[in-house]
Design a binder for these strands. Structure first.
Lengths: 205, 205
DNA sequence: ACCTGAACACCGTTCAAGT
DNA sequence: ACCTGAACACCGTTCAAGT
């Protein structure tokens, strides 16, 4: 009834497999998602997982599709298009911080852009509302997405390391600068500053 | 004399091991760098590699140290600090493009910031030459590094995908915008524009 | 000092075979 | 339709043993 109840229960579904996969990723990270571990958590052998959803790559792809949709509920706030774009970016940033494993998953799956697919369209609408069209609008949209994507990826891939926080490996000319660099910094301030500077130049006042 | 000459030659050195590792990474990518493949290329068995340099992680770390130094020869050009910073960033970008495997290696090794360790100090000098000190200088340096790092990582991790080039997954409100987005774009233009906008706000005129 | 054989504990994936 | 056993071809790493 305990261990043997595996065989007695309902057949697996792709949804159950993906639930288990997501649970592994959330608790132990993408690197812990192996076919044997996943099958084990489901009380089944690896070929069964292949039968229901497919290999590791397919599972990662479907996890991303799931995660992507959770980033779809963002709504812009503010009066000016710049403010609304800014709010969209900050909201996306907050969402990514709440679910840091999303980035690891999308990188492993080779779909680093997945996070943006939902935001893209909404930002495009704001860019057009600001009065940009055609090539100008495309350029603005791209610049904003590079800004957002770059910031997220750097924050999660590099900022965790020592070198942007502590600069112990080189001596700054100015001891005062050196001292400031050893403190940690308000990362959001850097992002907001950059985004503002870029938006001010992109959008007509 | 042919196959058996392996045993007849000089003992291995860490340098030779790293040369072979670098060759694998350059031709077939980081994912092709396995201990067995590396040992095989050297005509030796895996424990020998461990004896000379260590495990995979150690090898990757030492490869990064090597690559890092190749990014040290950059010299700033231009009259104003802004121009000199801009030239440093563009030079670094060119270097990374010439050696795209550097990014893959530094990511695999979990040292995404490695590319910047050399540029950091030089940019700091320019920031101070522009008249910034203490906290202001630290903020400017960080903002510039985020800009540079983000751009590089996005270009290599995301721009290769379809979604920033082709936007086939959603319909833009404006068909003209949609058309523009399906064209590929001058990526450098996006970077230069963003960097200029940020520098203009960071540095005193 | 330098190198090997052999093993341990893992991977992703496939396929014939069972019910 | 759904699941297993068993295998294939890989991994990184360790360790006793050889010369």
């Amino acid at each position: 009834m305990t261990a043997d109840s595996y065989r007695a229960r309902e057949p697996l579904t792709p949804e159950l497999v993906l639930d288990a996969a997501m649970a592994i990723v959330e608790t132990d990270g993408v690197e812990a998602l192996s076919m044997r571990r996943l099958a084990g958590d489901l009380g089944v052998r690896t070929p069964t997982v292949y039968w229901h959803v497919g290999g590791r790559q397919e599972i990662l792809d479907k996890l991303i599709d799931r995660l992507m949709n959770e980033f779809g509920r963002l709504r812009p706030r503010g009066k000016t298009p710049a403010a609304r774009i800014s709010s969209l970016c900050m909201a996306l940033l907050r969402e990514v911080r709440r679910r840091p494993h999303v980035i690891a998953v999308s990188r492993t799956a080779g779909r680093g852009e997945a996070i943006f697919t939902r935001a893209q369209e909404k930002i495009a609408r704001e860019v057009e509302a600001a009065g940009l069209h055609g090539r100008e609008a495309a350029f603005a949209l791209r610049t904003i997405l590079f800004q957002l994507g770059g910031f997220i990826v750097v924050e999660f891939g590099i900022a965790a390391d020592t070198s942007l926080h502590g600069v112990n490996r080189w001596q700054a000319a100015d001891p005062e600068l050196r001292d400031e660099l050893s403190h940690s910094i308000d990362i959001d301030e850097v992002f907001r500053f950059s985004l503002d500077a870029v938006l001010a130049r992109l959008l007509p006042s």
